[in-house]
Design a protein around this nucleic acid. Structure first.
Lengths: 204, 204, 204, 204
DNA sequence: GTATAAACGAGACGGTACGTCAGGTCTTTCT
DNA sequence: AGAAAGACCTGACGTACCGTCTCGTTTATAC
């Protein structure tokens, strides 16, 4: 999302990285306190003590700033966690994701996913830098589970992940408030249990 | 979402329902052809050949018009379908939902859910008039499945529905384009199969 | 300079003439106190307590406002004065013009003529509404002087007026500060005397 | 107008006079082809292939560049010409001035005088380097004419010059397009004739 | 029938933000 | 130390819409 600077070096004054950070911070701060809707370049510039041009030189619109700020530290904030079993890895990682969703950054992610429905570039960035970055790792959890005989051999990893994470995104974006709609660890555990065991009544 | 009209009736010229329909239509048309982002009251008014006041008299903002247009015909366009088994009912209804998501209205729903992340009123309307309206019926499918011994007796209906529909919304909003990311009937069927059977390898 | 409003009447809210006057006044006030250079639409709007659009709806740029304000009351402020002789009429009118040039409006006129050198529309407006409006009357003074035998019959009225008023504009725009460079009545009188009598030494 | 360079010589890299000339030329070229209004330092720098700083090091603003370019060659381009009689000297010099006014440089002079109405520094420069430079010489023409008995002994040289040159500037800045408004030689001759002979009908 | 009252189209109004341009300064590297 | 490049803050540009407010007109009920 950041403008790549391919240019013969040494020409002109270099971009000030401090300024870049200030802008990112200002955008997040303003967004979190007064809502990401109505977040304007003008306000961010003022709050960061920066000219508008300085912002436009780096990003094309407000959402790019926010996306930049969020996607920069995906890995740190909602990490994936491998354990000895596939079920363990998935459950642990889902709990961490749910925790992230519940926190203040969850609000930002919601706004970002929301805006992405109407902004192709952001949509692409989100899928590539957020979704697929995580899924590529998660798929391996599933594959290893299958290989080790833990999981059914005929499973499609992506469908498995959809069945587990889909509900999480659903609760993030459309929480219908029904007892466990708060993305609690209990909800995650119940969900994992349900999906792993299946819906059908066993035996006889 | 529509402004309630508390007034002694018969006084003054009545609202023209044709005008209301024209505005709704104009909003949808403009949104579908040039994107719901950037859809402005001014443009809708011009396209509908109507004064701005006439719109503000009925709705508080553009998104209310769109929500109104969409939520009006939820039941008709993505109906729920009961069959003899819970699995049958759920699978059939999910296929209809997926079809709706794939169609032109899916684009609108995406935009609406997106916008709702940042607009409390819309968020509430969407959950109540769209999500819960459907879920209340769907829950019965699950309950009857349990009652009939078709499904595990310890299931939480909401978690079941999350596990089945969550992936659908996930694919609607963040399609990561991986083979079956197109909300096809095949995807729905694979998903149903996976969730119903569970992930674990059955003992010997 | 004012936008002519040819439109079926009764359509829409009418322009507010008070607002128009406020804007004109604000422009003049700001210009006189802080210089017409650097006079911005934004400042005028702020000072008049008016939105920018409201200004753009009436004029295309700041100079049009000023021209509008000045040219509106040309006739009142630097009137032409007919007397019994051509010389009397010309001298009296020139004194009034000089007085106008000396006053606060002279500063505005200077700025306006200055700007006109670089703005075709303004140039045209100035010549038509200011210069020719006056000259058409002044020419009659000269013609009548010729008819009455007061002035040489072979004179070209325009050259006569140039010889008399040219110096006045010259002193307005490029005052070289040389004793009588202040557009005083004495200067006007000396000028009239010199031009009327001619430069040549009369043959004995 | 040029920044004077009082500095111990040999310290650092010397100013490149070629660069100075390029900038002057670029300013004139851009001004003549796309109007002196809207002439920007940025554009001049780009057109001259020069950094903005390099310009600011020499001049304080665009108009200083233009003034510099014009005033540099006043003497060459609109010279004063002494002849045997005062009338001859004045008429000849006025024709040369009129020719200059008509030419491409006249457009620049107009713009400069225009801008000077709103820019004190430029105003001062113009009066000193252009107007007074010429007038000091012209005054001698008049004085000698008086001394030789050619002209009335009671004349004020400045008023004489105003009466003759005033109309020229008037026609330059506010050409009202009336037959001879084109600063032609014929116009100059008619003007000289009129002013020298005076307006009054002679004797009997 | 004639008030009265609201809806309606048009468009003016005070605003906010947009994205761009230029101003003048500062900072870097190269000459 | 000069020069070219370009980042930086500032402030104005002219435009698009916002939501509110007149206007004159139309369309209904109620007196």
């Amino acid at each position: 999302m950041k403008k790549v600077n391919v240019r013969k070096p040494g020409a002109g004054r270099p971009r000030d990285e401090d300024v870049t950070r200030q802008i990112r911070a200002a955008a997040m701060e303003l967004g979190l306190e007064s809502g990401f809707d109505g977040l304007s370049i003008e306000a961010v510039a003022a709050h960061a003590g920066v000219g508008k041009t300085t912002i436009y030189r780096r990003w094309r619109n407000v959402w790019s700033i926010v996306a930049d700020a969020v996607l920069d530290d995906v890995a740190k904030l909602a990490p994936l966690q491998e354990q000895s079993t596939a079920r363990g890895s998935l459950a642990a990682s889902m709990r961490l994701a749910a925790r992230y969703f519940r926190g203040p950054r969850g609000k930002v992610l919601r706004a970002l996913i929301g805006r992405a429905q109407v902004d192709r570039t952001l949509h692409k960035a989100l899928i590539e830098q957020w979704l697929l970055a995580r899924r590529n790792v998660t798929r391996e959890f599933v594959r290893r589970g299958i290989a080790k005989g833990e999981l059914r051999p005929d499973l499609d990893p992506d469908i498995v992940i959809d069945a587990l994470y889909g509900p999480l995104y659903h609760q993030l974006l459309l929480p219908y408030d029904s007892g466990h709609g708060d993305l609690s660890d209990a909800y995650v555990d119940a969900l994992v249990e349900t999906v792993f065991a299946g819906l059908e009544r066993k035996g006889e």
